[in-house]
Design a protein around this nucleic acid. Structure first.
Ligand code: SF4
Ligand code: SF4
Lengths: 137, 137
DNA sequence: GATATTAGAGACTCTTAATGTCTTTAATAT
DNA sequence: ATATTAAAGACATTAAGAGTCTCTAATATC
């Protein structure tokens, strides 16, 4: 019952890309920044690409950058791209109008609302303002 | 990123015990009701006991019943007893005043507030009213 | 067009946590 | 004493996450 490390890496990567919006950044640089192997991070980046949150260009001088079409990206968008759209509580039986599910779903919904209201760009700018780039603290 | 099955079993068990408040119920009956092995459910019940949510009496005519001292038990209480008190998002680094953690913690807090506000007894009574005991639907 | 560079895909291994079983021990009522 | 029941612990199984390695495809540059 914990968000995967991949989600953490994805969030850091996205915020970094937010602050580099003009230029493309290679997986090499992104991996070094987080002390990860490039091939592993590559899988995470591919998920983000498929979700339309970032754009990738292969070949020399290629790399990743924030999606042109999707400028307002929330925390929930990133989490959803990595974790998929499964529910926290997912009883396999699904009795019609289950009271337990109702409670759990509502609770999860409250969390998601909060995550959807927080935009990466705001956090990125706040972090930049603090001028301790890389630590986001 | 999902609540464990054990949490599901625990919730069902607790609601069942809520509706049997007078008498003690053995693990045998509780296990059959959910089609589980008694030994496995036993572990879950032990967790609930240690958390003070239910009381156990060994020996003949023994079994489990809702705690006398803790009458207002919330969904969060049960989840906490089973899943422990770990955070959904738990970066191992913990930079001081981390902005990402702030967002994630707040979101999780919103969920927990909802779960803490829902009492088992209310759901149990509602289920009983619907008269489809066992299905809670 | 050849070459260097970079993303993407897939097979594979390793680690960890959840799930579940079996056996033994301790407590209690009758 | 005996039957009954919870508790504890060792153990096996399964599933998911984390991570590596290799090969392929696309692109810029020369
Ligand atoms: S009542 Fe709800 S949680 Fe319980 S088994 Fe039916 S669907 Fe699942
Ligand atoms: S900035 Fe926050 S999330 Fe990122 S490494 Fe530091 S503590 Fe962890």
């Amino acid at each position: 019952m914990k968000y995967s490390n991949a989600t953490n890496y994805a969030l850091h990567t996205m915020i970094h890309l937010m602050l580099q919006r003009e230029s493309t950044v290679g997986v090499q640089e992104l991996a070094e920044m987080q002390h990860l192997s490039p091939t592993y991070l590559s899988k995470i980046l591919t998920k983000l690409t498929k979700a339309g949150l970032i754009e990738s260009t292969p070949g020399a001088k290629g790399g990743y950058k924030i999606s042109r079409t999707k400028d307002e990206i929330s925390f929930l968008d990133v989490i959803h791209a990595i974790e998929g759209d499964t529910n926290l509580f997912d009883c396999s039986i699904h009795h019609e109008g289950c009271l337990i599910e109702n409670v759990m779903r509502q609770a999860e919904e409250n969390m998601k609302e909060e995550l959807a209201s927080k935009l990466l760009i705001d956090i990125a700018k706040e972090a930049e303002a603090k001028r301790e780039t890389g630590k986001l603290s």
